[in-house]
Computed example of a mutant assay.
Amino acid sequence: MTSMTLDRAATAPVAGTTRIADDKAMLRAAADLTRELSQPKPAIYWADLVASAMVGYGALAVAVTASSTAVVVLAGIVAMLGLYRAMSFIHEVSHMKHGSVPHFRLGWNLLVGIPMLIPSFMYEGVHNLHHAKTRYGTVEDPEYLPLALMKPWTLPLFIVVSALAPVALLFRYAILSPLSVVVPSLRRAIVERYSALAINPQFRRRAPEGAAAIYWNRIEAAASIWAIALVAMVATGVIPLRAFGIAMLIASAVAVINQVRTLVAHLWENEGEPMSVTAQYLDTVNVPPPSLLPALWAPVGLRYHALHHLLPSVPYHALGEAHRRLTAILEAESPYHEASYPGLPGLVWKIGRSTMGRR
Protein backbone atom coordinates (compact mmCIF):
# COMPACT_ATOMS: atom_id res chain seq x y z
CA MET A 1 0.00 0.00 0.00
CA THR A 2 1.18 3.54 -0.67
CA SER A 3 2.31 5.48 2.37
CA MET A 4 1.16 8.98 3.27
CA THR A 5 3.20 11.93 2.07
CA LEU A 6 6.20 12.76 4.23
CA ASP A 7 7.55 16.30 4.14
CA ARG A 8 11.20 16.75 3.26
CA ALA A 9 13.47 18.88 5.36
CA ALA A 10 14.11 22.28 3.92
CA THR A 11 17.84 21.77 3.61
CA ALA A 12 20.26 21.04 0.83
CA PRO A 13 20.66 17.38 -0.17
CA VAL A 14 23.59 15.39 1.09
CA ALA A 15 26.12 14.60 -1.61
CA GLY A 16 26.70 11.21 0.04
CA THR A 17 26.92 8.50 -2.56
CA THR A 18 25.22 10.42 -5.35
CA ARG A 19 28.28 11.31 -7.46
CA ILE A 20 30.38 8.19 -6.93
CA ALA A 21 31.74 6.63 -10.10
CA ASP A 22 31.39 2.91 -10.72
CA ASP A 23 34.06 0.65 -9.26
CA LYS A 24 34.69 -1.60 -12.25
CA ALA A 25 36.81 -4.10 -10.32
CA MET A 26 33.99 -4.73 -7.86
CA LEU A 27 31.34 -5.02 -10.56
CA ARG A 28 33.51 -7.37 -12.62
CA ALA A 29 34.28 -9.58 -9.62
CA ALA A 30 30.61 -9.73 -8.66
CA ALA A 31 29.68 -10.93 -12.14
CA ASP A 32 32.59 -13.36 -12.62
CA LEU A 33 32.52 -15.08 -9.24
CA THR A 34 28.80 -15.77 -9.06
CA ARG A 35 27.76 -16.93 -12.51
CA GLU A 36 26.99 -20.49 -11.45
CA LEU A 37 25.03 -19.30 -8.39
CA SER A 38 22.13 -17.84 -10.35
CA GLN A 39 20.14 -21.06 -10.66
CA PRO A 40 17.43 -21.34 -7.98
CA LYS A 41 16.96 -24.67 -6.21
CA PRO A 42 13.24 -25.55 -6.16
CA ALA A 43 13.58 -27.98 -3.24
CA ILE A 44 14.96 -25.21 -1.02
CA TYR A 45 12.27 -22.76 -2.07
CA TRP A 46 9.40 -25.15 -1.43
CA ALA A 47 10.75 -26.58 1.83
CA ASP A 48 11.48 -23.15 3.25
CA LEU A 49 8.13 -21.67 2.22
CA VAL A 50 6.04 -24.61 3.46
CA ALA A 51 7.94 -24.86 6.76
CA SER A 52 7.66 -21.11 7.38
CA ALA A 53 3.93 -21.13 6.62
CA MET A 54 3.32 -24.17 8.84
CA VAL A 55 5.16 -22.59 11.76
CA GLY A 56 3.39 -19.27 11.22
CA TYR A 57 -0.14 -20.61 10.89
CA GLY A 58 0.35 -23.23 13.58
CA ALA A 59 1.52 -20.63 16.08
CA LEU A 60 -1.29 -18.32 14.98
CA ALA A 61 -3.83 -21.06 15.75
CA VAL A 62 -2.33 -21.43 19.23
CA ALA A 63 -2.32 -17.66 19.82
CA VAL A 64 -5.98 -17.15 18.92
CA THR A 65 -7.23 -20.08 20.97
CA ALA A 66 -5.03 -19.95 24.08
CA SER A 67 -6.43 -18.60 27.33
CA SER A 68 -3.09 -17.81 28.95
CA THR A 69 -1.74 -14.36 28.17
CA ALA A 70 1.84 -15.66 28.27
CA VAL A 71 1.02 -18.38 25.74
CA VAL A 72 -0.76 -15.87 23.51
CA VAL A 73 2.27 -13.56 23.55
CA LEU A 74 4.81 -16.33 22.97
CA ALA A 75 2.78 -17.97 20.21
CA GLY A 76 2.11 -14.55 18.70
CA ILE A 77 5.83 -13.83 18.42
CA VAL A 78 6.48 -17.21 16.78
CA ALA A 79 3.54 -16.65 14.42
CA MET A 80 4.81 -13.20 13.51
CA LEU A 81 8.29 -14.48 12.68
CA GLY A 82 7.03 -17.49 10.72
CA LEU A 83 4.49 -15.52 8.70
CA TYR A 84 6.98 -12.71 8.13
CA ARG A 85 9.46 -15.16 6.64
CA ALA A 86 6.76 -16.77 4.49
CA MET A 87 5.51 -13.39 3.29
CA SER A 88 9.05 -12.26 2.46
CA PHE A 89 9.12 -14.75 -0.40
CA ILE A 90 7.10 -12.22 -2.40
CA HIS A 91 10.48 -10.61 -3.03
CA GLU A 92 11.79 -13.81 -4.63
CA VAL A 93 8.58 -14.24 -6.63
CA SER A 94 9.01 -10.77 -8.10
CA HIS A 95 12.50 -11.64 -9.36
CA MET A 96 12.30 -15.26 -10.48
CA LYS A 97 11.58 -16.64 -13.90
CA HIS A 98 8.53 -18.68 -13.04
CA GLY A 99 9.64 -21.68 -15.06
CA SER A 100 12.76 -22.00 -12.89
CA VAL A 101 10.65 -22.98 -9.87
CA PRO A 102 7.46 -24.36 -11.42
CA HIS A 103 4.17 -23.29 -9.82
CA PHE A 104 5.93 -21.51 -6.96
CA ARG A 105 4.14 -18.22 -7.60
CA LEU A 106 0.75 -19.97 -7.49
CA GLY A 107 1.75 -21.94 -4.42
CA TRP A 108 2.93 -18.78 -2.64
CA ASN A 109 -0.29 -16.97 -3.50
CA LEU A 110 -2.43 -19.84 -2.20
CA LEU A 111 -0.40 -20.33 0.99
CA VAL A 112 0.40 -16.72 1.83
CA GLY A 113 -0.51 -14.05 -0.70
CA ILE A 114 -4.28 -14.53 -0.69
CA PRO A 115 -4.73 -15.41 3.01
CA MET A 116 -2.58 -12.45 4.10
CA LEU A 117 -4.08 -10.16 1.42
CA ILE A 118 -0.77 -9.35 -0.27
CA PRO A 119 -1.13 -11.17 -3.62
CA SER A 120 2.00 -11.30 -5.75
CA PHE A 121 0.78 -8.73 -8.28
CA MET A 122 1.24 -6.07 -5.61
CA TYR A 123 5.01 -6.50 -5.98
CA GLU A 124 5.46 -7.93 -9.46
CA GLY A 125 5.93 -5.13 -11.97
CA VAL A 126 6.68 -2.74 -9.09
CA HIS A 127 9.84 -4.03 -7.45
CA ASN A 128 11.65 -4.36 -10.77
CA LEU A 129 11.34 -0.56 -11.18
CA HIS A 130 13.34 -0.16 -7.96
CA HIS A 131 16.16 -2.12 -9.61
CA ALA A 132 16.13 -0.13 -12.86
CA LYS A 133 19.52 1.63 -13.00
CA THR A 134 18.06 4.91 -14.21
CA ARG A 135 15.16 4.92 -11.72
CA TYR A 136 16.77 3.98 -8.42
CA GLY A 137 16.51 6.81 -5.91
CA THR A 138 14.53 9.04 -8.26
CA VAL A 139 10.92 10.13 -8.12
CA GLU A 140 10.13 7.20 -10.46
CA ASP A 141 11.34 4.66 -7.89
CA PRO A 142 8.29 3.23 -6.05
CA GLU A 143 10.43 1.99 -3.15
CA TYR A 144 12.53 5.05 -2.36
CA LEU A 145 12.14 8.14 -0.23
CA PRO A 146 15.06 10.35 0.89
CA LEU A 147 14.25 9.56 4.52
CA ALA A 148 17.67 10.67 5.75
CA LEU A 149 16.95 14.14 4.36
CA MET A 150 13.51 14.49 5.91
CA LYS A 151 12.36 15.94 9.21
CA PRO A 152 12.89 13.86 12.39
CA TRP A 153 9.20 13.16 12.98
CA THR A 154 8.90 11.36 9.65
CA LEU A 155 10.79 8.28 10.90
CA PRO A 156 8.42 7.31 13.73
CA LEU A 157 5.48 8.14 11.46
CA PHE A 158 6.99 5.90 8.78
CA ILE A 159 6.96 3.00 11.27
CA VAL A 160 3.67 3.69 13.06
CA VAL A 161 1.60 4.03 9.89
CA SER A 162 2.62 0.50 8.84
CA ALA A 163 0.67 -0.93 11.79
CA LEU A 164 -2.52 0.04 9.95
CA ALA A 165 -1.63 -2.01 6.88
CA PRO A 166 -3.78 -5.09 7.75
CA VAL A 167 -6.87 -2.92 8.19
CA ALA A 168 -6.13 -1.05 4.97
CA LEU A 169 -5.64 -4.30 3.04
CA LEU A 170 -8.87 -5.76 4.40
CA PHE A 171 -10.76 -2.63 3.37
CA ARG A 172 -9.07 -2.62 -0.05
CA TYR A 173 -10.08 -6.21 -0.90
CA ALA A 174 -13.40 -6.55 0.95
CA ILE A 175 -14.84 -3.16 0.00
CA LEU A 176 -12.93 -1.38 -2.74
CA SER A 177 -12.32 -4.35 -5.04
CA PRO A 178 -16.03 -5.27 -5.39
CA LEU A 179 -17.04 -1.62 -5.76
CA SER A 180 -14.43 -1.05 -8.45
CA VAL A 181 -16.10 -3.63 -10.67
CA VAL A 182 -19.02 -1.23 -11.20
CA VAL A 183 -17.23 2.11 -10.75
CA PRO A 184 -14.58 2.56 -13.49
CA SER A 185 -13.08 5.71 -11.96
CA LEU A 186 -12.59 3.90 -8.67
CA ARG A 187 -10.97 1.02 -10.52
CA ARG A 188 -8.41 3.35 -12.08
CA ALA A 189 -7.59 4.82 -8.68
CA ILE A 190 -7.21 1.38 -7.10
CA VAL A 191 -4.86 0.17 -9.82
CA GLU A 192 -2.77 3.33 -9.81
CA ARG A 193 -2.52 4.00 -6.06
CA TYR A 194 -3.61 0.98 -4.01
CA SER A 195 -2.18 -2.02 -5.81
CA ALA A 196 1.51 -1.73 -5.02
CA LEU A 197 3.70 -2.37 -2.00
CA ALA A 198 5.37 1.00 -2.42
CA ILE A 199 6.52 3.78 -0.09
CA ASN A 200 6.82 6.60 -2.63
CA PRO A 201 3.50 8.52 -2.46
CA GLN A 202 4.10 9.98 -5.91
CA PHE A 203 4.23 6.57 -7.57
CA ARG A 204 1.36 5.73 -9.90
CA ARG A 205 1.08 2.23 -11.26
CA ARG A 206 0.19 1.39 -14.85
CA ALA A 207 -2.68 -0.98 -15.52
CA PRO A 208 -1.57 -4.52 -16.43
CA GLU A 209 -2.10 -5.88 -19.92
CA GLY A 210 -2.49 -9.26 -21.58
CA ALA A 211 -1.66 -12.35 -19.54
CA ALA A 212 -0.56 -10.21 -16.58
CA ALA A 213 -4.01 -8.59 -16.44
CA ILE A 214 -5.75 -11.97 -16.54
CA TYR A 215 -3.60 -13.34 -13.73
CA TRP A 216 -4.05 -10.15 -11.70
CA ASN A 217 -7.85 -10.29 -12.02
CA ARG A 218 -8.04 -13.93 -10.98
CA ILE A 219 -5.81 -13.51 -7.94
CA GLU A 220 -7.52 -10.28 -6.93
CA ALA A 221 -10.93 -11.96 -7.18
CA ALA A 222 -9.73 -14.75 -4.92
CA ALA A 223 -8.30 -12.26 -2.40
CA SER A 224 -11.54 -10.27 -2.49
CA ILE A 225 -13.70 -13.36 -1.89
CA TRP A 226 -11.48 -14.34 1.05
CA ALA A 227 -11.62 -10.82 2.54
CA ILE A 228 -15.41 -10.68 2.25
CA ALA A 229 -15.72 -14.15 3.78
CA LEU A 230 -13.42 -13.15 6.64
CA VAL A 231 -15.49 -10.04 7.43
CA ALA A 232 -18.70 -12.10 7.24
CA MET A 233 -17.33 -14.78 9.58
CA VAL A 234 -16.34 -12.17 12.14
CA ALA A 235 -19.66 -10.34 11.82
CA THR A 236 -21.67 -13.54 12.33
CA GLY A 237 -19.56 -14.82 15.21
CA VAL A 238 -18.07 -17.79 13.35
CA ILE A 239 -14.69 -16.24 14.14
CA PRO A 240 -14.72 -14.81 17.66
CA LEU A 241 -13.89 -11.12 17.88
CA ARG A 242 -11.06 -11.84 20.33
CA ALA A 243 -9.44 -14.31 17.94
CA PHE A 244 -9.80 -11.87 15.05
CA GLY A 245 -8.27 -9.08 17.13
CA ILE A 246 -5.27 -11.23 18.06
CA ALA A 247 -4.76 -12.24 14.43
CA MET A 248 -4.89 -8.60 13.32
CA LEU A 249 -2.36 -7.62 15.99
CA ILE A 250 0.00 -10.33 14.74
CA ALA A 251 -0.48 -9.13 11.15
CA SER A 252 0.27 -5.58 12.31
CA ALA A 253 3.44 -6.79 14.02
CA VAL A 254 4.52 -8.39 10.73
CA ALA A 255 3.93 -5.10 8.92
CA VAL A 256 5.86 -3.14 11.54
CA ILE A 257 8.92 -5.40 11.55
CA ASN A 258 8.97 -5.29 7.77
CA GLN A 259 8.78 -1.49 7.87
CA VAL A 260 11.66 -1.37 10.34
CA ARG A 261 13.66 -3.57 7.97
CA THR A 262 12.72 -1.23 5.12
CA LEU A 263 13.89 1.75 7.18
CA VAL A 264 17.41 0.30 7.43
CA ALA A 265 17.56 -1.37 4.01
CA HIS A 266 19.03 1.81 2.49
CA LEU A 267 20.81 4.91 3.71
CA TRP A 268 18.16 7.00 1.89
CA GLU A 269 20.59 9.81 1.11
CA ASN A 270 19.70 10.47 -2.52
CA GLU A 271 17.27 13.24 -3.40
CA GLY A 272 16.25 12.34 -6.90
CA GLU A 273 19.47 12.36 -8.92
CA PRO A 274 20.39 9.32 -11.07
CA MET A 275 23.15 7.25 -9.43
CA SER A 276 25.86 4.92 -10.64
CA VAL A 277 25.55 1.22 -9.81
CA THR A 278 28.29 1.56 -7.20
CA ALA A 279 26.53 4.58 -5.66
CA GLN A 280 23.31 2.60 -5.51
CA TYR A 281 25.18 -0.24 -3.83
CA LEU A 282 26.67 2.07 -1.21
CA ASP A 283 23.24 3.54 -0.49
CA THR A 284 22.08 0.01 0.34
CA VAL A 285 22.83 -2.23 3.32
CA ASN A 286 24.29 -5.69 4.04
CA VAL A 287 24.07 -7.11 7.56
CA PRO A 288 26.17 -10.28 7.14
CA PRO A 289 27.31 -12.83 9.73
CA PRO A 290 28.48 -13.06 12.47
CA SER A 291 25.34 -11.11 13.41
CA LEU A 292 22.54 -13.61 14.13
CA LEU A 293 19.41 -11.50 14.61
CA PRO A 294 19.26 -10.30 10.96
CA ALA A 295 18.22 -13.85 10.06
CA LEU A 296 14.95 -13.03 11.86
CA TRP A 297 14.31 -9.38 10.93
CA ALA A 298 15.81 -9.58 7.42
CA PRO A 299 14.91 -13.13 6.29
CA VAL A 300 15.02 -14.81 2.87
CA GLY A 301 18.27 -13.16 1.85
CA LEU A 302 17.23 -9.62 2.77
CA ARG A 303 20.23 -9.31 5.08
CA TYR A 304 22.28 -9.11 1.85
CA HIS A 305 20.22 -6.28 0.38
CA ALA A 306 23.20 -4.36 -1.02
CA LEU A 307 24.62 -7.50 -2.62
CA HIS A 308 21.18 -8.21 -4.04
CA HIS A 309 21.29 -4.83 -5.79
CA LEU A 310 24.57 -5.88 -7.41
CA LEU A 311 23.28 -9.34 -8.31
CA PRO A 312 19.47 -9.25 -8.48
CA SER A 313 19.32 -12.56 -10.36
CA VAL A 314 21.08 -14.56 -7.63
CA PRO A 315 18.49 -16.48 -5.52
CA TYR A 316 18.29 -15.83 -1.82
CA HIS A 317 19.83 -19.15 -0.81
CA ALA A 318 23.05 -18.37 -2.74
CA LEU A 319 23.65 -14.83 -1.50
CA GLY A 320 25.62 -15.98 1.53
CA GLU A 321 28.07 -17.89 -0.66
CA ALA A 322 28.32 -14.95 -3.07
CA HIS A 323 29.14 -12.65 -0.15
CA ARG A 324 31.84 -15.03 1.13
CA ARG A 325 33.48 -15.22 -2.28
CA LEU A 326 33.51 -11.47 -2.80
CA THR A 327 34.70 -10.73 0.73
CA ALA A 328 37.60 -13.13 0.29
CA ILE A 329 38.85 -11.81 -3.05
CA LEU A 330 38.21 -8.06 -2.96
CA GLU A 331 40.87 -5.86 -1.38
CA ALA A 332 40.21 -4.07 1.88
CA GLU A 333 39.94 -0.75 -0.01
CA SER A 334 37.10 -2.04 -2.20
CA PRO A 335 33.79 -0.22 -1.74
CA TYR A 336 32.18 -3.64 -1.44
CA HIS A 337 33.06 -3.79 2.25
CA GLU A 338 31.63 -0.34 2.98
CA ALA A 339 28.03 -1.54 2.62
CA SER A 340 28.31 -4.04 5.48
CA TYR A 341 27.00 -3.06 8.92
CA PRO A 342 27.02 -4.95 12.24
CA GLY A 343 23.34 -4.75 13.14
CA LEU A 344 20.00 -3.00 13.45
CA PRO A 345 20.64 -0.52 16.32
CA GLY A 346 23.56 1.18 14.60
CA LEU A 347 21.61 1.54 11.37
CA VAL A 348 18.61 3.06 13.14
CA TRP A 349 20.93 5.45 15.00
CA LYS A 350 22.65 6.43 11.74
CA ILE A 351 19.47 7.46 9.94
CA GLY A 352 18.00 9.00 13.07
CA ARG A 353 21.11 11.13 13.61
CA SER A 354 20.96 12.25 9.98
CA THR A 355 17.37 13.49 10.33
CA MET A 356 18.05 15.14 13.70
CA GLY A 357 20.48 17.46 11.95
CA ARG A 358 17.69 18.61 9.60
CA ARG A 359 15.11 20.16 11.88
Rank of each mutant, 00 (worst) to 15 (best):
M1I: 10
T2P: 07
T5I: 10
T17K: 05
D23P: 01
M26E: 02
L27N: 00
R28S: 08
T34F: 02
T34G: 08
W46F: 13
D48F: 04
D48P: 02
L49V: 04
L49A: 08
L74V: 15
A75R: 01
G82M: 03
A86Q: 01
F104H: 09
R105A: 14
W108Q: 08
N109M: 06
I114Y: 00
M116N: 05
I118T: 15
I118P: 09
P119R: 06
L129F: 02
R135A: 14
G137K: 04
Y144Q: 10
P146Y: 03
A148Y: 00
M150I: 08
L157T: 15
L164G: 12
L164R: 02
A165Q: 12
V167K: 00
Y173C: 10
I175R: 01
S177I: 09
V183P: 02
N200D: 05
Q202P: 03
Y215D: 15
A222V: 09
A223H: 02
A229L: 13
I239T: 08
L241G: 01
V256G: 10
V256D: 14
T262L: 10
V264R: 04
H266R: 07
Y281Q: 10
H305G: 03
H308G: 07
H308D: 07
T327K: 09
A339K: 01
P345S: 11
T355F: 01
